[in-house]
């Protein structure tokens, strides 16, 4: 027994691996990952509303403004029962080191996202429209202040 009643000290020899430890220890199996994923609207694929069976609290996406003058940027997600708790959890989880001056929390299932499979057609329009960029115009090269 250690002087502080340290529960880390096992009852048997402290410094050795206890190979005789009870075999009632947990059965280790690879995590069951067969459950089919549900495609959600945002980044997270799990259906996210708070009443989803198996998930006690709803999922919130967290956006943090790192300093005045900058946009809020997606920092990650967390679970919370309501917006007030989501904000408090977001503060504890994503701004432990002054990473933010403002936080937004958004229910994950309130986010509508573009379909990654259709990116070809969805983002087609700017293709071949180089003339929208200043670099397209080369004749003015060497001309000052242009």
């Amino acid at each position: 027994m250690s002087p502080h009643g340290n529960p880390e000290v096992p009852a048997s020899s402290a410094t050795e691996i206890n190979r005789e430890a009870p075999k009632a220890s947990p059965v280790v199996e690879p995590a069951d990952i067969k459950s089919s994923p549900v495609v959600g609207p945002g980044e997270t694929r799990v259906s996210t509303s708070s009443n989803t069976p198996g998930n006690a609290w709803g999922l919130w996406e967290v956006f943090v403004r790192s300093s005045r003058g900058l946009s809020h940027v997606h920092a990650g997600s967390l679970h919370a029962p309501d917006a007030a708790m989501a904000l408090r959890n977001a503060r504890d989880l994503y701004t432990r080191r002054n990473e933010g001056v403002s936080i937004w929390v958004v229910p994950a299932d309130a986010i509508a996202a573009s379909d990654p499979d259709s990116k070809g057609s969805f983002f087609e329009s700017p293709q071949g429209k180089d003339y929208r960029h200043a670099t397209y115009y080369t004749k003015s090269e060497g001309v000052k202040h242009l």
């Binding site: 995590a31 990952i33 459950s35 089919s36 994923p37 549900v38 980044e43 997270t44 694929r45 799990v46 198996g54 998930n55 006690a56 999922l59 990650g76 997600s77 967390l78 679970h79």
Partner: peptide, 11 residues
């Protein structure tokens, strides 16, 4: 959170 984006349920 990262694992959840792969379709695993947190609980």
């Amino acid at each position: 959170s990262a694992a959840e984006t792969l379709g695993q349920n947190r609980d």
